[in-house]
């Protein structure tokens, strides 16, 4: 079998700065598959925080930076549905009045993938030979589910993990209340939402909640930690690299 094409990692700012172990797990996953990864050192942020807050000029600066760095890559893989949806859906809109940039944005968007999407849909891999002792439930992050349309891929991957029991939580597709700056500016509403999410996780009987977006997981983890609950939060890459 020919060696699969190498992938270029886009490690979103949140993971790069706060959860570097998640990015290391992604590297580990590709290592298992014998796929070469490269990591352009100049990368920073896709621009989503600015875009969601309405600062489009500033988001454009980030988008141009992203495009310049990644347009030469064969396939760009990112462990976040939210950042990928930024690149795929919103870059085009950002450059609506700049056709040259828009064309470059479209070209990059077409080869940017979320991690589980790339594993299952592009590589056709579901069994990574991982092992994890625990009962796992899965939280659907909003943009991954509704913009990228990824729902079954992470579940398939989790089901193949040895020693893991997979259980669904009620309303797994309901927003956790993160929403970027929403969680800071509208902290009370956000808290009510994450409280419900955590209650649903508890109802499932899981000891571990897995997701594909660190934004959501950071929110869930923050609430769990404050309330001393015996639930672990893991990015799916961490589960699959084990």
């Amino acid at each position: 079998m020919p060696k699969p094409q190498p992938v270029t990692l886009f490690i979103q700012c949140l993971v790069d700065g706060l959860y570097p172990e998640v990015a290391e797990a992604v590297v580990q996953v590709f290592k298992k598959l014998n796929i070469d990864v490269d990591y352009p050192l100049d990368q920073t942020c896709c621009g989503q925080p600015a875009f969601n807050a309405g600062y489009r000029q500033e988001a454009k600066t980030a988008a141009r930076h992203f495009i310049e760095i990644f347009e030469k890559s064969h396939a760009i893989v990112c462990p976040s549905g939210s950042c990928v949806s930024m690149v795929r859906r919103h870059y085009e809109e950002l450059f609506a009045k700049e056709p040259r940039w828009q064309a470059r944005a479209d070209a990059v968007a077409a080869k940017t993938y979320e991690l589980t999407e790339y594993l299952v849909d592009v590589l056709g891999v579901t069994d990574l030979g991982a092992r994890y002792d625990g009962t796992v439930t899965y939280h659907d992050s909003c943009h991954l589910l509704r913009v990228i349309g990824v729902q079954q891929q992470p579940r398939q991957l989790i089901r193949y993990v040895k020693n893991t029991q997979f259980v669904e939580m009620p309303d797994s597709d309901q927003c956790c209340g993160f929403g970027g700056s929403f969680a800071f500016k509208y902290g009370d509403i956000s808290t009510a939402m994450v409280a419900e999410k955590v209650k649903n996780i508890q109802t499932s009987g899981a000891d571990t909640v897995v997701g594909c977006d660190m934004g959501c997981l950071m929110n869930i983890q923050g609430y769990i930690n404050r309330n001393n609950l015996p639930i672990k939060t893991l990015h799916i890459a961490q589960l699959l690299s084990g």
């Binding site: 570097p20 800071f184 009370d188």
Partner: peptide
């Protein structure tokens, strides 16, 4: 607004880069 009800992960000593 965040930490009134939740903790938050701190910045890692060494970034992924």
């Amino acid at each position: 607004g965040w930490t009134r009800s939740r903790d938050i992960k701190s910045v890692a000593k060494a970034s992924f880069k």
